[in-house]
Write a protein that binds this DNA or RNA. Structure first.
Lengths: 186, 186
DNA sequence: AGATCATGTGTACGTTCGTACATATGATGC
DNA sequence: GCATCATATGTACGAACGTACACATGATCT
């Protein structure tokens, strides 16, 4: 008989490493990079503490993986958001809905993105992640508009979402957002 | 005779509290909120460790003061940047130079601002600081344009500066920035 | 079935943190 | 000049952190 109830002894958990990365993203979303610790991630992923240092080369390495995964997910969201765009009007609609949060990206997703930006500002090892994410999002926009307009749209999205996320009082209406978006698209 | 050279015994330092706040801003700029500790601030301000808990009600209180001071300084920069603006062309020039970092705000100032945004996202006590700072910067712009345009400009500034701060590779030229700014100003 | 060994985990260590508090200090009233 | 007390500071403590490592575990091979 097994030594029942003494040890869960959960072994052979094939996508444990992947689950740890997801847990790390969750913890960053909830507590920020500053509040992200091995122990919290382990608790969310439901794995022992030692499992983190076993699979990853320290907390920095784990954070890099987490941000990388988040960037991939955000890229996918961008991709699907602009998938059916055919003309200028549809592009404006897509950007507007992305900002107005009718799209798939919620408040927490953007919060993680901002955490990444700030972390990358101080940790050069994360620059590759931000660079590739920016290139990806800009690349999607460049299918429809010239590079400069793409930069402008990217910045406008970032800025409006950030203000929307922070400002508790007065949110911009969808019509107002569309108005602003339309101005930057020639 | 005094017990020379044993104790500096620096007492009655009238603007010590203010100096501690400045030191806190410096530490946040260099190490981020995550790397901001009592001990580091004390070292920069050149005061004993106990002085921080004496003058402030914990680290959170000190951070709030630091962010408040930074917001004031940024408001002053905005103010002086738009002081001589008379017409649309001058407004566009002012915004462009603010983004292009010919203005007084340097990279570190913006970094602190982003730290504040992120911290406020999780700490409601900091919301008052961000709210007043946003109201202030928006108020300056609203002297020249309608409220919606002010929001758009504010977001564009934030987004472009953020991308500029992060992206190491390709920076936008001043002419390109001016082009984008001109589009959002009707 | 039993020996073997790569794979995985519990625990303990050294460090650093925020904070509290007993004590030192010097300005002030007598 | 001396006692007094608000002001300021050095130090110590408990908690939480990242990380390392000795040991348990079960798949694999003979």
């Amino acid at each position: 008989m097994k030594p029942a109830a003494t040890r869960p002894a959960r072994r052979f958990d094939p996508d444990r490493k992947s689950r740890i990365i997801d847990a790390a993203v969750t913890v960053v979303a909830e507590h920020g990079v500053a509040g992200t610790t091995h122990r919290r991630i382990a608790a969310v992923a439901d794995v022992p503490l030692g499992s983190l240092t076993y699979h990853f080369d320290g907390l920095g390495d784990l954070l890099a993986h987490a941000f990388g995964r988040h960037a991939e997910r955000m890229s996918a969201i961008y991709e699907s958001c602009f998938a059916g765009v055919r003309d200028r009007a549809q592009l404006i609609d897509a950007v507007t809905s992305l900002i107005h949060a009718d799209a798939e990206a919620d408040q927490q997703d953007w919060a993680v993105a901002y955490e990444l930006y700030l972390a990358a500002l101080r940790d050069p090892a994360l620059r590759t992640v931000t660079e590739s994410w920016m290139r990806s999002s800009r690349g999607v926009l460049e299918r429809f508009v010239d590079p400069l307009t793409a930069r402008g749209l990217d910045a406008l999205i970032e800025g409006l979402v950030m203000h929307k996320t922070l400002s508790t009082t007065t949110a911009l209406s969808e019509a107002e957002i569309r108005d602003l978006v339309r101005r930057t698209v020639p």
